[in-house]
């Protein structure tokens, strides 16, 4: 489903807070703040996760020179059960809150909904974004952190990061959300939780294709089409899918993936980064800043999410995936 925003809501502020390991990220210099302790000096990983979200939101209000009372909506999601880190952050922030779960695609789905609220006139300012914390997610979806299981080369490393933006009325000095595509749930029967990129690539393919078709655009209309966290292998699969559907190699250069690039070529991170915070951190730091400086004029951000739970995996269900896209422009 493609939405065209007539009022072109703008992204008025952005903030990314990341964990200690994320210093190794190639996007590190674009982040607003990095904390030395993964738990943010809290007692549990989940509390640290929540703290990270709060910190990102505080940076946003500071940058925009507003306070929490001026913000109408807080739209956030993460990967922990029932999204308690987001819920608890909302408790501290005291902003009207809708929790969203699109797995790692929440970074984009939250922006879509806040843009809709803005277009409706229901929101002056809305904070949207997503976060993930490595230890909290890994322990829930896979094994205890210190368990010595071997991960295959297709496995990805859940990034510790929170990326948020402030969405408000159109302002030509800031990047604007001009269109969005809400993705369908696609499932090609993949069951391997250590190969999420392979499960999610068809969802990204579906959403990007639908967006370009409805908007009557081609790859070249964009400076960049960036998926969320397909990882190195998943990106290759997506590129192959597009190549088979007739996209030329030089156009495929425009297709990049936040997760594949996140930790650079460091093999310790296997196929790259993943997690809701991965796409949020790259989109809402690097991409927004490149738009602001005018290096990018039009980008398509397509965050992918694997909609599984540890329970569904153990019960032998395949991994349904989704992808949501937003088209950002800079005038």
């Amino acid at each position: 489903m493609v939405i065209v925003f007539q009022s072109k809501p703008s992204i008025l502020a952005n903030a990314v807070v990341a964990g200690p390991l994320e210093k190794k990220s190639v996007f590190y210099s674009y982040f607003d703040s990095v904390v030395e302790d993964e738990r943010w000096n809290q007692k549990t990983n989940e509390q640290g996760h929540s703290k990270m979200i709060i910190e990102a939101c505080e940076i946003i209000t500071k940058k925009a020179n507003i306070n929490n009372l001026d913000v109408d909506y807080f739209l956030s999601g993460d990967l922990v059960n029932q999204m308690t880190p987001s819920n608890f952050a909302a408790r501290e922030l005291a902003i009207s809150f809708i929790g969203l779960f699109s797995a790692c695609a929440t970074s984009v789905s939250s922006v879509i909904i806040s843009s809709l609220l803005t277009e409706l006139g229901a929101s002056q300012y809305a904070i949207a974004g997503a976060a993930s914390q490595h230890n909290a997610i890994e322990r829930q979806f896979r094994y205890p952190i210190e368990y010595g299981g071997k991960k295959p080369a297709t496995a990805q490393w859940t990034a510790t990061a929170a990326g948020y933006v402030l969405v408000g009325k159109h302002n030509p000095e800031y990047p604007s959300v001009v269109a969005a595509t809400v993705g369908k749930v696609v499932d090609y029967g993949d069951t391997n939780p250590f190969h999420m990129g392979g499960a999610m690539a068809p969802a990204a393919f579906d959403t990007i294709k639908a967006h370009l078709k409805k908007r009557n655009q081609k790859f070249q209309d964009y400076d960049l089409i960036m998926t969320g966290d397909l990882g190195k292998v998943g990106l290759k699969i997506l590129q192959t899918m597009f190549a088979q559907s007739g996209i030329k190699p030089e156009e495929l250069q425009l297709l990049r993936d936040a997760g594949a690039e996140f930790y650079g070529e460091d093999e310790a991170f296997l196929a790259g980064a993943s997690g809701a915070g991965c796409s949020a951190a790259v989109y809402f730091s690097y991409i927004i800043q490149q738009l602001k400086t005018g290096r990018f004029k039009r980008v398509l951000l397509c965050a992918t999410g694997a909609l599984l739970s540890p329970l569904s995996f153990q019960q032998g269900e395949s991994i349904p995936c989704t992808a949501h896209a937003i088209e950002l422009t800079m005038e």
Partner: peptide, 24 residues
């Protein structure tokens, strides 16, 4: 975890791997 990532079953099958599963 580092040993396990390198060795796979080499560190999982010995009793140390059982210990690791419990202790982790």
């Amino acid at each position: 975890t580092k040993l396990g990532q390198f060795a796979g079953a080499g560190s999982a099958v010995p009793v140390t791997g059982f210990g690791n599963a419990v202790i982790s």
